[in-house]
């Protein structure tokens, strides 16, 4: 066994089953402390399953999990002391007020008296709910419920924060304040792992992301690099010509144009797919310039994060290994 990372999230060979169904066949994950990591993938990819296993709430079939340097499989109690988990559609007790709810959890973490009240006030402040502390939880709106749950997660200053779709139900202002709160947490050394279907948000908040498909991590790394890699896998070029686009189109159909293929006419520009590396791209440009087609610009189109996820979702559904 290799020496695990002392902090952050460290997962090896994780497998999660529901009865005969394997939701996550094999997952390795390393997230350094202070990182905000976004796990994205289509519905049913296994994000919630992974999170629940990380949060020691679901017994995986096998796998090693270290959270903040604590072994979550062998010593779940130690791991629970440093982690906070916010489930998707996190529940709230109907019979408590917002501040009472936070006080209950603060006391469960061993905070009493003025220390408790200060911490509760600080966490309410962090999620912008100070004015609502005397409102019954059942009377909060969806976004406020999410924020109150986030405040509960922050109470004990966790080293690892696991957030399942924290931004769902939040309005623009709330998402901005969520982003603020998460950045502040990460700056203090907390590792944050979150999932979200609001992709621009992910792109904006997360310093690194992982793409999950059928319970397997397809790609993982710094957000920009992952997006770049994913768009290189299926790069597209946009060519604008001052001459006739039809001529350009017919040249692109010729064997000269390879490895560019599948050109389409879009107004006065032509878009095509390109399946080659950077050198092939340079050679292609030289040939294009020599073909006398009055090309005025050649532009690379990056896939947006939406397109990447769409591709993941529409990829053939490979059955998980038994």
């Amino acid at each position: 066994m290799s020496v695990p990372a002392p902090h952050g999230v460290w997962v090896r060979n994780l497998r999660v089953d529901y009865g005969p169904f394997t939701a996550v066949p094999h997952l390795d994950l390393t997230i350094p402390p202070g990182e905000i990591y976004g796990l994205i993938g289509p519905n049913g990819a296994g994000k919630t399953s992974t999170f629940r296993a990380l949060a020691t709430l679901l017994d995986p079939v096998h796998g090693e999990i270290f959270l903040g340097g604590r072994d979550a499989r062998h010593d779940p109690e130690a791991a629970r002391a440093v982690l906070a988990y916010m489930p998707d559609l996190a529940p709230l007790p109907e019979d408590l007020r917002a501040a009472e709810y936070l006080r209950f959890f603060a006391e469960s973490h061993g905070l009493y008296g003025p220390a408790r009240d200060q911490r509760v006030a600080a966490c309410l402040e962090a999620v912008d709910l100070t004015g609502r502390q005397h409102v019954f939880c059942r009377a909060l709106s969806l976004g406020m419920r999410q924020r109150l749950n986030l405040a509960r997660c922050l109470l004990h200053r966790p080293k690892v924060l696991i957030l399942d779709e924290p931004a769902s139900g939040m309005d623009v202002a709330a998402r901005a304040s969520l982003k603020e709160a998460l950045r502040a947490q990460a700056a203090s050394g907390t590792t944050i792992i979150l999932s979200s279907h609001i992709l621009p948000e992910v792109q904006d908040i997360c310093s690194s992301i992982g793409l999950l498909q059928n319970g397997r991590l397809v790609d993982s790394g710094e957000t920009r690099e992952v997006l770049l890699r994913q768009s290189h896998a299926k790069k597209r070029l946009r060519i604008r010509t001052a001459g006739s686009p039809e001529n350009l189109l017919s040249w692109l159909y010729s064997p000269d144009a390879l490895p560019a293929h599948a050109p389409v006419l879009r107004g006065d520009t032509v878009e095509c797919q390109f399946a080659g590396d950077t050198e092939a791209q340079a050679r292609f440009f030289t040939r294009l310039a020599g073909a006398n087609l009055a090309v005025v610009s050649l532009e690379e189109i990056h896939s947006s994060i939406e397109e990447v996820v769409l591709r993941l979702a529409s990829a053939p559904h490979e059955p998980a290994a038994p």
Partner: peptide
């Protein structure tokens, strides 16, 4: 009710 709502999961994570 606490189990059905999933609240006991959050409580299970406290060091109590």
């Amino acid at each position: 009710r606490e189990h059905a709502e999933g609240l006991s999961d959050a409580q299970r994570l406290t060091p109590l």
